[in-house]
């Protein structure tokens, strides 16, 4: 891997944000609106605080952490779509840029996006709802890292599908992540799910993160087992997805799809 090629791609995408209002909205406007709506729902639910202890910390914390996963996924997939929209894929892949460098750059961009969005949401939650995400404490760090990696995995999967099936599959960039939301148990505990779906959810690293978060907030136990599972599953899935991305890239070159992906 060559750092200058990764830097080139990162810079190319950062230039986009300098003069693009819609792209800035992606960072400030939507996450902020999300927080406002869920903030009001939380205020309403606080009336039932007796029946639902810790509702504020659960909901707003979960919302911010879910956005970490969502933006990490978008950071990868939207960066790929940007290249399709700009008809720039040929320029990139006819250069010495390797697919692994492309992925590395998009992963770095997703960290940039996650950081920007998280700052907006954390500050807004503090200002408008007096909610401090850092109540979760140092556990927040491994939780966030795991959610970023989970977002990358879904991002690489989605990007591979768009590369393989063309621009008509671009709707997956926004929809795919929500396929994983019910089994990520973001806003409810895993025991709410039917038993068969619980088994599926346990195979999802994000579910372990959100279960772990609830454990910390309830001060019930240390979430070490959940973190171990989340990390192990994340590393396994990410390795598989990166391998699949390379395989899809070869198939696309074989079938001439790479040069037609934007058509």
């Amino acid at each position: 891997m060559k750092l200058h090629r990764i830097v080139a791609l990162i810079t190319r995408h950062l230039y986009l944000y300098r003069r693009s209002l819609p792209r800035m909205m992606e960072i400030f406007y939507w996450p902020f609106l999300d927080l406002v709506v869920w903030g009001f729902i939380t205020i309403y639910l606080m009336r039932f605080q007796g029946q639902l202890p810790g509702v504020v910390t659960f909901f707003l914390g979960a919302l911010i952490l879910w956005d970490v996963l969502f933006r990490a996924q978008q950071g990868i997939t939207i960066s790929f779509l940007e290249e399709i929209w700009a008809r720039n894929l040929m320029n990139l892949f006819a250069s010495p840029l390797k697919p692994s460098e492309f992925l590395a750059a998009t992963m770095a961009l997703s960290v940039f996006k996650v950081t920007a969005v998280s700052i907006v949401m954390v500050v807004a939650a503090l200002v408008f709802y007096s909610y401090n995400l850092f109540l979760i404490g140092l556990w927040l760090i491994p939780f966030v890292l795991n959610l970023i990696v989970a977002g990358w995995t879904i991002g690489v999967l989605t990007t591979s599908l768009i590369m393989r099936f063309g621009q008509e599959a671009e709707v997956l960039a926004w929809g795919m992540v929500f396929l994983f939301q019910p089994i990520s148990c973001v806003f409810y505990p895993i025991e709410v799910l039917p038993r068969w779906l619980q088994a599926v959810a346990w195979a999802n690293p994000a579910a372990h993160v959100f279960e772990g978060m609830r454990l910390v907030l309830n001060q019930a136990a240390l979430p070490l087992m959940h973190l171990a599972w989340a990390t192990g599953l994340n590393l396994l899935y990410l390795a598989l997805m990166v391998g699949w991305f390379h395989h899809t890239f070869s198939i696309c070159k074989e079938r001439g799809l790479l040069v037609r992906v934007g058509e």
Partner: peptide
């Protein structure tokens, strides 16, 4: 042009 130049080192 800057991005291309950087890409090619």
């Amino acid at each position: 042009l800057w991005v291309v130049a950087k890409l090619y080192g």
